[in-house]
C-alpha cells in the first residue's frame, strides 16, 4: 500500500541514482579520452638508412635505429622487419634465419615462421632510394615478400 507521497519519493530516488550513473559514466568516458591525448604518434615511420654502397653484396645488415635487416642480393635489395610478430621483441640473426630472444619464435632466412608462438611472418618493408643515394625504409608500409628494390 504505497501512498502517493512514497511513490514520488522512490521515483525521485531512481531519478537521483540514474543521474549519478550518468555522471559517473560520463566521467569514465572523459577520463578515457583524457588519457589518450594526441600528443605523440609514435616514432617516425620513414627512416633514412645508409648508402647502397654501405651494404656489401650478398650480405644481411642489421640497422638498429630502424629495427630492420637489409639484404642486398643479386636480384635487388630488400628490407625485413626485425620486430617479432609475437610480442614485439627484436629478433636476432641465427645460424639459420632469425630467433626471438623473448619467447623463442623462429623464422627462416626469408622471415617465414618455422617455429614458436609467432602468429605471422616477419614483415617485408617498402624501400626506396633518394637522389643522394640513401636508402629509405617505410616501417608503416609492408610489401609482398617477393618485392626487391632494383639497383639499376
Amino acid at each position: 500500500m504505497s501512498t502517493p507521497d512514497l511513490e514520488r519519493r522512490s521515483t525521485l530516488f531512481r531519478l537521483g541514482v540514474g543521474s549519478l550513473a550518468l555522471v559517473l559514466g560520463e566521467a569514465a568516458w572523459a577520463t578515457a579520452r583524457f588519457a589518450r591525448a594526441p600528443l605523440s604518434y609514435g616514432p617516425p615511420l620513414e627512416r633514412r638508412l645508409g648508402r647502397l654502397s654501405d651494404y656489401p653484396p650478398g650480405a644481411l645488415t642489421y640497422e638498429d635505429g630502424a629495427r630492420v635487416f637489409v639484404r642486398r642480393g643479386p636480384d635487388g635489395v630488400q628490407a625485413i622487419s626485425a620486430v617479432c610478430t609475437h610480442l614485439g621483441c627484436t629478433v636476432r640473426r641465427a645460424a639459420q634465419g632469425f630467433v626471438c630472444p623473448c619467447h623463442g619464435s623462429r623464422y627462416d632466412d626469408a622471415g617465414r615462421v618455422v617455429g614458436g608462438p609467432a602468429p605471422s611472418d616477419l614483415a617485408h618493408l617498402s624501400l626506396k632510394l633518394d637522389a643522394a643515394g640513401h636508402l629509405h625504409v617505410d616501417l608503416g608500409q609492408p610489401v609482398d615478400p617477393g618485392t626487391r628494390l632494383s639497383e639499376g
Partner: peptide
C-alpha cells in the same frame, strides 16, 4: 634501454 636490441635471453 636500447629499442634496437633485445638482450638474449630477455
Amino acid at each position: 634501454a636500447d629499442p634496437g636490441r633485445t638482450p638474449d635471453p630477455a
